[in-house]
Amino acid sequence: MIDANNEAAGKNSLLADFYREMRRVRTFEERVGELFVRGQSAGSMLHLSIGEESAAVGICANMRDGDTFTTHHRGHGIFLARGADPARMMAEIAGKEAGYCHGKGGSMHIADMGLGHLGANAIVGGGIPAVVGAGLAARNRKTNAVSFAFFGDGATGQGILYESMNMAALWKLPVMFVCINNQYGMGTRIDQATANPNLHERAEAFGLAARTVDGLDVEDVNEAAAELIAGARAGQPAFLVIDCYRFFGHARKDKSPYRDETEEAEGRLKDPVIRARDKLISSGMMSEADLDAWDAEIATEMDATIDFSIAEKEPQLSSMYRDVYAPGEPEPEPVRTRLERVLARE
């Protein structure tokens, strides 16, 4: 977890930290893909954020203890950049008891209240209004926390986003809307779904501080994020669009036949990980060998998450009825128990 506000960290080491964290996100996502190929993931609805690492890392570096956030279905990188344990994440993606949600949530529903992660969502736009509520809580309880909604360009089609932006602006809440514009909502390119693709203009219309930043350079994302988040913390809700490119298909099985190879090849040139790496090398801050050593270290760390998730046990069947309601409340009666009871009469 990076803290961009830590003044002991100079600019140079911050870029190195950004690189390292982005590499961790990318490598984790590659291992998620591998887990699927090995038939060990729970299902195939795995949405990778490869190409979008600067958004996760650039924003999360500006979060503070107590801040909260919700993410969309493509949220592994955000959670990892906020400090999640990748092994427990992978176990959740494998549907195992050791996962963050005990195998009940999976890739699209990972959450951890300890890190302020109010939950990933499989409903497009579903997690956005919760940050308005979290912003209200921060305001009324004077916690100085900001609540962040991460979503994709596809969510700008949902009315709930506009209802939420209006409330956040009306009530001057410490809320930050982060739109990761990877150009595609599933198989639909943004210009095929959006009459005006200048998304930040919509937020301006509601009175939010809004801008668009190129996600190619994580330092640019960090800079824009720092400014807007400082404003949000002071009660000026903000909206940041981060332009990037979704390197792969919508979900693990999608080979993206709806876009041509030239476009994909060009899109993948917009690589925030490589950009940061090149800057570190060309400025003499780090050598290629140093960075390779980091990469190898990260590969080892992430390989271990696969081993861990495969070795861990399945949830117990009896856990099925747990957590429908609060601890201590009666659990729902299993259908079989009910049948045995009903049919046991004389």
Binding site: A42, G95, G103, P315, M320, V324, E333
Partner: peptide, 20 residues
Amino acid sequence: EDPVVRVAGEDIPISVSPLL
């Protein structure tokens, strides 16, 4: 001769775990 029996989904959300 018997109550009409329902064999239906459990009164719980669906888990991502294939087993559950």
